[in-house]
């Protein structure tokens, strides 16, 4: 548990913002897929912390980025944080993605909506390790596609929108790249129907695939057993056994 300081609160549009946090001391090492439980202060209707995926880490600048979608009172309150404000976080929590040994592996990272958040961190992490990445990002409309400039620093970026306002028209699973290339591993995070469609594609084509799940949580560290998902090993906590799961383990 640590009090971090808001270095910048960057509004992307009326729905999304990025909290760039820093600390006096060196930030702990974090892995892609991991998340933070963020305490929301001074919001009478927000009782529990909010689990928020780690979006990006810059160890040199001692920065931790959280990409947040305004959903309810808690995230609304967080959107009002100003430079210099203090935020209490429990982090890093959860597991990480499985990285293939072969550095030449053709990797596809698929993100939808706010689910792109861990994909940026994963992309930058893979990039640092010498892998090349392909990002496939989807949204309802162009304004839902976020951080495209950041993504393009770490690999090829492909997009889809349901209204055709950016990239190919349709869902991520309808993008032409899926027919043109063979992938060795797919990593995905986004709305459940999207992740299920990606998982179905991966299964059909026999591609290794991991998904990062989202769930409502009370604690975030395995004590409350509220955030379980059904797996081949029974009910497992998304917070400690996940949030990253291999699709072959999930019963969904």
């Amino acid at each position: 548990m640590l009090d971090l300081v808001v270095k910048e609160n960057k509004s992307l549009n009326n729905q999304y913002f990025i909290l760039i946090l820093t600390a006096v001391d060196k930030l702990p090492e974090m892995l892609p897929g991991q998340f933070a439980e963020v305490r929301v202060d001074d919001s009478p209707t927000t009782f529990l912390r909010r689990p928020i995926s780690i979006n990006f880490v810059d160890y040199e600048k001692n920065e931790l980025w959280l990409l947040v979608q305004i959903v309810g009172d808690g995230t609304q309150k967080l959107s009002q944080l100003k430079t210099g404000d203090s935020v209490n976080l429990i982090f890093p929590l959860g597991n990480t993605f499985t990285i293939p040994e072969n550095k030449k592996a053709n990797l596809l990272l698929i993100g939808g909506g706010v689910g792109i958040a861990p994909m940026l961190f994963l992309g930058s992490y893979l990039n640092d390790l010498g892998y090349s990445c392909n990002f496939l990002l989807g949204g309802r409309t162009a304004s839902n596609l976020l951080q495209l400039d950041d993504f393009s620093r770490f690999g090829n970026v492909y997009t889809t929108t349901e209204d055709g306002s950016h990239g190919e028209k349709g869902f991520v699973t309808q993008h032409s790249i899926l027919n043109k290339q063979n992938f060795d591993a797919i990593y995905t995070c986004g709305p459940t129907p999207m992740m299920k469609a990606v998982a179905a594609y991966a299964q059909k084509n026999n591609v290794f695939c991991e998904v990062s799940l989202e769930n409502t949580m009370a604690c975030g560290f395995g004590a409350c057993l509220c955030c379980v998902t059904d797996t081949t090993d029974g009910h497992l906590c998304v917070c400690t056994e996940g949030p990253v799961f291999n699709i072959t383990k999930l019963k969904w």
């Binding site: 409502t216 409350c224 509220c226 955030c227 998902t229 059904d230 009910h235």
Partner: peptide, 16 residues
């Protein structure tokens, strides 16, 4: 245990 969802936040509390 029970199926999910298993938790709902409430004003100043939670249901499990």
């Amino acid at each position: 245990g029970n199926a999910y969802p298993r938790m709902a936040e409430t004003p100043s509390g939670m249901l499990n």
